[in-house]
Design a binder for these strands. Sequence first.
DNA 1: CCATCTTTGTGCACGCGTTCACAAAGACAT
DNA 2: ATGTCTTTGTGAACGCGTGCACAAAGATGG
Lengths: 259, 259
Amino acid sequence: MATGRSTQNNPNPAAGNRRSRGRGIPDATVARLPLYLRALTALSERSVPTVSSEELATAAGVNSAKLRKDFSYLGSYGTRGVGYDVEYLVYQISRELGLTQDWPVVIVGIGNLGHALANYGGFASRGFRVAALLDADAALTGQLVAGLPVRHTDEMEEIVRSERVSIGVITTPPVAAQQVCDRLVAAGVTSILNFAPTVLNVPDGVDVRKVDLSIELQILAFHEQRKAGDDLDDADAEVPAAQPAAVVSEGTELEEAAG
Amino acid sequence: MATGRSTQNNPNPAAGNRRSRGRGIPDATVARLPLYLRALTALSERSVPTVSSEELATAAGVNSAKLRKDFSYLGSYGTRGVGYDVEYLVYQISRELGLTQDWPVVIVGIGNLGHALANYGGFASRGFRVAALLDADAALTGQLVAGLPVRHTDEMEEIVRSERVSIGVITTPPVAAQQVCDRLVAAGVTSILNFAPTVLNVPDGVDVRKVDLSIELQILAFHEQRKAGDDLDDADAEVPAAQPAAVVSEGTELEEAAG
DNA sequence: CCATCTTTGTGCACGCGTTCACAAAGACAT
DNA sequence: ATGTCTTTGTGAACGCGTGCACAAAGATGG
């Protein structure tokens, strides 16, 4: 049944496991580099020249040994007895993450979330550039969002090719997501950030990362329930009474139009 | 420097590691339960009575052995030679995740993203109920968003207490996030879903999960860069020329008002 | 130039998570 | 009732990620 081998499932072990040993940076480390970069950027703005692994670790919310090991994969950029040069490290991490180059991105599905992403400052800053906003709803075409005109999804292929877009962001309703994904991939996109609550099927060589709001909430609910259950110990051992009950649809998840 | 021990760092190993061996469901499994639940709900809507681990696994985008092991932590709910009863499994997972009860949630920071979340269908369905929308901008107070009036953050404490809110969602700008977090926790919130690109400091017993859009993009960029680099092999070994250059601010990330 | 002190870089061990592979369990046909 | 066939549940091995703890490296002061 399944065609291509998707890489999105695993919550975070980062997609693209097989080639992760390219020059050898572990996926877990790659996932933390943006964290370090953010902390370092803040230090840079405060004109702090150097920082110790201990300081940087607490600023990034990680263990200092972990941080040092992470950096060791990039090379030996620290000075013993002193710490790390902030500017130098910012540059090295940026380069490692590929942020010193320009990444054109398309956002497909301009509902509330697409809107939010288009206005998201973090995009424009870190080397990412919104090449186009796309939506299947012709009524939106031409409308300005975050200073950019919304364009119809008919133009998707042309835009991806001419702008050399390799990263696509999907914020459509779940039913449209797979189709949009297929078209993006066919047009040349090889990395996808998926906000639609659907499992995307992609061919080998295409990375998918998933951001799922309701999953995060459900995980919180689990821990929350356990906290409450711990107080009265096994109070939940006996099920209330009813059957499935609650648990409703899902269909009309993200936004309204697109596809 | 760091006060409380935060649990948000690890990209996904799910917060609350220490008490994860309550009755023994691994964090990695908990993080996948919502995935299974979604796939099962879809089957349920199509009135499919039973499903094999193989079918369900591909629908959820995971390995079938992993799925079976995950379910084994919940108990033996399958029938050998047949598979799993869809309705029964939906109920068991819902119960395990605590979705058979009502979870009032507050969203703090009603910018674009707060808007998107307020309108997000996935909230209302799966046992979550938006108890209030809060924003520090008095100009927004009273405005209807997704049918609910925006209320001023001054009311935060009262609402959290009277509505017994235990889960808070933070969609404020990064500078306001920690302060909002502190107030939420002081008022009684014990689980936080943080969309602001900041490390939140929380006391023990409070779970934080982080959703960071720019981090996900940066991880994609890393893999994308490597794909490109693989083609011409070590073409990036020699750095272009310039120094830091690119890498800009960060400050005005999420949304505008709040705090 | 030497001693001391700080901080990095890493060898090692441990634990969690994943996957394989198979025995046990049960459905179903005869 | 018995045999066959499907599918679960899990024992065991493996690999990745984490954290400890320490030796090496270098700065700094006398």
